[in-house]
């Protein structure tokens, strides 16, 4: 079993059945779910953007609301992916035993876990896109370069879905997820350049934030939304992709050890 727990993931197109199951459930409540997902980031973006922004001339070479909009696209993607794999994913894995039922059919755990990650990335993608659409409607998007934010958001969603799923695989109960939000998600919100430039941090912290995925998502999305080509595109994408792949693999190994014993 030990060797098998670490085996290379084996996927099949059946992971789409898992994705589709979740999307069918989501469709039943799509509108309230989208509004609920949007409300929180919108309040922060508009409240701080216009309220706080009125007192600031420019942040990072742009109006504060535009600065914040790019950060909010990324942070709402992070939030949405994390919530989905942790709270909803834990329900399906542990409480409702939905995964168990699926694995009695010819679908393997590898398919289930990848299906869940891709689903969470898709759902968080919609959250990111909704914020992008609002930002665009408010005239906070400068050029068609912003279309490149679309793939960035999807990769960001994959990275945070994988990371959250590691917690799900560990978790004995819903309470456990609070630690992750308090110790990982909220700090990232604050230090990765969502609300203020990373350059405002003390030097050692600036270096540390380079290891965090949200930093790289923001450093791609912000220039793209403001009509500029980001620097170090390959590096930022590589970090996000590395987080996505590594966290998925770790989550899969942990889930195999939890469920296939």
């Amino acid at each position: 079993m030990t060797a098998k727990a670490y085996a290379v993931p084996a996927f099949s197109p059946r992971l789409l059945h898992v994705w589709r199951r979740n999307s069918l459930v989501w469709r039943k409540l799509a509108i309230p779910s989208m509004l609920g997902n949007l409300a929180d980031p919108m309040l922060y973006m508009l409240g701080l953007g216009y309220g706080l922004g009125a007192m600031l001339s420019e942040v990072g070479g742009m109006p504060y609301i535009a600065f914040l909009a790019a950060g909010t696209v990324c942070s709402s993607t992070m939030m949405s992916a994390s919530f989905e794999v942790m709270y909803s994913g834990f329900s399906r894995m542990h409480v409702q035993k939905t995964w168990e039922a699926i694995m009695n059919a010819p679908v393997t755990l590898d398919d289930v876990v990848l299906g869940e990650v891709v689903w969470a990335a898709s759902k968080s993608f919609l959250s990111g896109m909704a914020v992008l659409a609002v930002a665009s409607a408010l005239g906070l998007v400068q050029s068609a370069l912003a279309l490149w934010v679309i793939p960035v958001v999807f990769v960001t969603g994959l990275a945070f879905a994988g990371m959250g799923l590691i917690m799900t695989a560990f978790s004995p109960s819903y309470d456990f997820f609070m630690y992750y939000f308090t110790l990982v998600v909220t700090p990232m919100m604050l230090v990765c350049g969502v609300f203020f430039p990373v350059s405002q941090l003390p030097a050692p912290f600036q270096v540390a934030t380079q290891a965090l995925p949200l930093t790289h998502a923001v450093e791609l999305a912000r220039p793209l939304m403001n009509g500029a080509v980001p620097g170090d595109i390959a590096l930022h994408l590589a970090v996000l992709a590395a987080y996505a792949v590594a966290s998925f693999y770790i989550a899969l190994v942990l889930t195999r050890r939890r469920l296939l014993k």
């Binding site: 069918l24 409702q96 035993k97 939905t98 168990e100 039922a101 009695n104």
Partner: peptide
């Protein structure tokens, strides 16, 4: 398979 504990999908 009919498992020991019901795992019908409560979302459907």
């Amino acid at each position: 398979v009919v498992p020991q504990a019901d795992n019908l999908d409560p979302d459907f």
